[in-house]
């Protein structure tokens, strides 16, 4: 559906707080704009984001039309164990886009 960019450290120490950056290319059409002929442009937005750390949600976001185009997030999580981080976006039609990043945690 769209281009995704993720920034996450590949290795971390156990207990360390790591920064995660996630961007998805999406126009986030508000539904408040009109086209060149005055017709209303229908709303088309991503409504939900979740970051799963080995399947468990560590951060979630709910988007409304006031989130800028190409939604960008910086958030944090505590490195607990090696595994995968899944970044998952869902749009208003239920379409899911996701990408995963591996993390190896040293004790």
């Amino acid at each position: 559906m769209a281009a995704i960019r993720i920034s996450a450290m590949k290795t971390a120490k156990a207990g360390e707080i790591i920064e995660l950056k996630a961007l998805i290319r999406h126009k986030m059409e508000t539904g408040f704009r009109r086209g060149s002929r005055g017709e209303a442009i229908p709303r088309d937005i991503i409504t939900h984001f979740v970051c799963l750390y080995n399947g468990e949600a560590v951060f979630e976001a709910d988007f409304f039309p006031s989130v800028a185009a190409n939604p960008f997030l910086i958030f944090y999580t505590r490195a607990t164990e090696s595994g995968t981080l899944e970044f998952r976006w869902t749009d208003q039609h239920g379409t899911v886009s996701s990408q995963t990043a591996n993390i190896s945690v040293e004790s």
Binding site: I17, I18, Y53, E56, V58, F59, A61, S66, V67, A68, P71, F72, L73, I74, F75, Y76, T77, R78, T80
Partner: peptide, 11 residues
């Protein structure tokens, strides 16, 4: 598990 209560985005 979020670890730090800080978040950034663009509105």
């Amino acid at each position: 598990r979020t670890g730090l209560a800080r978040v950034s985005t663009r509105i």
